[in-house]
Design a protein around this nucleic acid. Structure first.
Length: 492
RNA sequence: CGGGAAGUAGCGCAGUCCGGUAGCGUACCUGGUUUGGGACCAGGUGGUCGCAGGUUCGAAUCCUGUCUUCCCGACCA
């Protein structure tokens, strides 16, 4: 009995949900908009975390942890930030339950236990962190502060989707404090580069680096830099953001320092984050109608070995041979699983590990051992080849690298094939509707035009690419003069 | 939050219109035969029908409320 997966052509959204659920990444929960990340999905997240965490530390950052709750008075200190997030905050108003006298066995909120001041469950931590930084910073010698935190945040979204938009999600948020504007901007760009590096070299997910327009900017930021990825259905996904916060938070929380001349200056800030949303992006970048396709560098299982045997005797013989192979793989740092369970037959296991996106599968039976070989199957291309047991570890290690680079190449080609330059409104609409993907077009630079375009075709300006060439042109909507093309797309 | 659909065994579903005490496939357990692409035979286990009220002699079925999920909108660092 085949595990029925919806195909991408049938229903892309359903295909995505099927993969996440049947690929054992996550489950729905009893809590509105909140998901359970299952062990396999969490292992993937842990691998991503480990890589990112190392990159943060290599760029001089340290981890810390700040409270889940933000007192309302602090939350509202930076006006734009508060306004931007106000509509999607969970709020703690009471601190105690009591048994309900009118409803036996039930609990009720104790009206006597109302908080003096409401606590906001953090949708982001700038407020609580900058309130703390105030006490950490007196002199230029205290700067920079380069801190990251791994945390959960809550944003009460109206409509949620597994990994892509959940009410609670896991992320990291970097919050840095600097003595100069230039240094803060350099930090913002540096972390954007770290994100792009991670997306491309670990997730094999090509991204476009750019700057958001004013209307898409983070609430409270002077500039929002982002990486934008393209999914297989032609929609864009914002995969990470890095914000230059100027002195907005320093002013809101009165964070000043004495410079070398003993004059008081406001501190310059950045913040940057990526979340479990990346997992959604990963699924939609590489996977196919047979299931997940995971890049080797972050796959929880890189190689699965499926023995094929008749009877205990054969099983024992293959077990013995494979124990050596497994040990050799592990010594080479390869994440390997040897599945000699007898619950399911080989064919079942093949399908199961394909669904889970394991990059390499090795099948080995008596017939192979007689020939001193194994059958090796790639998840990305579905190719099967007979490979000698001699030097198998080296062969597999090399193949993992090749799969990693093949996935990036494939995704990059798809992405590049779906960046289209257009000069007229008709072309613009036509590309969005039929070819899909990113569209480079001239825009007159006004928020009003941006809004009109969004209303008419549901496409937004994903970013102004960082390496954008200047070029005179006319806005596709208004015909007004424009200095450069910007990147449009329909987005998640 | 507006419109539509759904929730019955771990999973996928039928039964609901027309009320009478729950069934199919799969999974699971036992035994046996099997094992190179989702095995087969036989015998079993498992369900307060999302939850809470109500109507009724009797509710999966009718009524009210509520929670969760999916799809389409609005919203969305």
């Amino acid at each position: 009995m085949a595990k029925e997966l919806t195909t991408r052509v049938q229903d892309y959204s359903q295909w995505y949900n099927d993969l996440v659920l049947k690929g054992s990444l996550a489950d729905y929960s009893a809590v509105r908009g909140c998901m359970v990340i299952k062990p396999y999905g969490y292992a993937l997240w842990e691998n991503m975390q480990a890589a990112l965490d190392k990159m943060f530390k290599d760029t001089g950052h340290e981890n810390a942890y700040f409270p889940l709750f933000v007192p309302k008075s602090l939350f509202e200190a930076e006006e734009k930030n508060a306004e931007g997030f106000a509509k999607e905050c969970a709020i703690v108003t009471h601190y105690r339950l009591k048994t309900d006298p009118n409803n036996k066995g039930k609990l009720m909120v104790d009206p006597e236990a109302k908080l003096e001041e409401e606590l906001i469950v953090r949708p982001t931590s700038e407020a609580i962190i900058w309130n703390t930084y105030k006490t950490w910073i007196q002199s230029y010698r205290d700067l920079p502060i380069l801190v990251n935190q791994w945390a959960n945040v809550v944003r009460w979204e109206m409509r949620t989707r597994l990994f892509l938009r959940t009410a609670e999600f896991l992320w990291q948020e970097g919050h840095t404090a600097h003595a100069t504007k230039d240094e803060a901007i350099a930090e913002t760009v540096k972390m954007l580069d770290v994100y792009a590096d991670f997306a491309e070299n670990w997730m094999a997910m090509p991204v476009i680096k750019g700057v958001k327009t004013e209307s898409e900017r983070f609430a409270g930021a002077e500039d929002t830099y982002c990486i934008e990825a393209l999914m297989q259905d032609g929609k864009a996904l914002q995969a990470g953001t890095s914000h230059f916060l100027g002195q907005n938070f320093a002013k809101a929380f009165d964070v000043k320092f004495s410079d070398k001349n003993n004059t008081q200056e406001y501190v310059w800030a950045t913040s940057w984050g990526v979340s479990t949303r990346l997992i959604g992006g990963l699924v939609m970048t590489h996977s196919d109608d047979e299931g997940l396709v995971l890049p080797p560098r972050i796959a929880p299982i890189q190689v699965v070995i499926v023995p094929i045997f008749k009877g205990d005797e054969q099983k024992a013989m293959i077990d013995e041979k494979m124990a050596v192979v497994v040990a050799s793989f592990k010594a080479a740092g390869i994440r390997v699983k040897y599945d000699n369970t007898d619950n399911n037959r080989p064919g079942w296991k093949f399908a199961e590990y394909e669904l889970k996106g394991v990059p390499i599968r090795i099948a080995v039976g008596p017939r192979d051992l007689e020939n001193n070989q194994v059958e090796l199957a790639r998840r990305d291309t579905k190719e099967k080849t007979a490979i000698s047991l001699d030097g198998l570890t080296e062969t597999v290690a090399a193949l993992l690298l090749e799969i990693q680079s093949n996935l990036l190449q494939r995704a990059t080609k798809y992405r590049d094939d779906h960046i289209t330059s257009v000069d007229t409104w008709d072309e613009f609409v036509n590309v969005l509707d039929n070819k899909t993907g990113f569209v480079l077009a001239h825009w007159d630079g006004t928020a009003a035009t941006e809004e009109k375009i969004k209303e008419q075709v549901k496409a937004t300006i994903r970013c102004i690419p960082l390496d954008n060439p200047l070029e005179d042109g006319k806005c596709i909507l208004t015909g007004n003069p424009s200095k450069q093309r910007v990147l449009f797309a329909r987005a998640y």
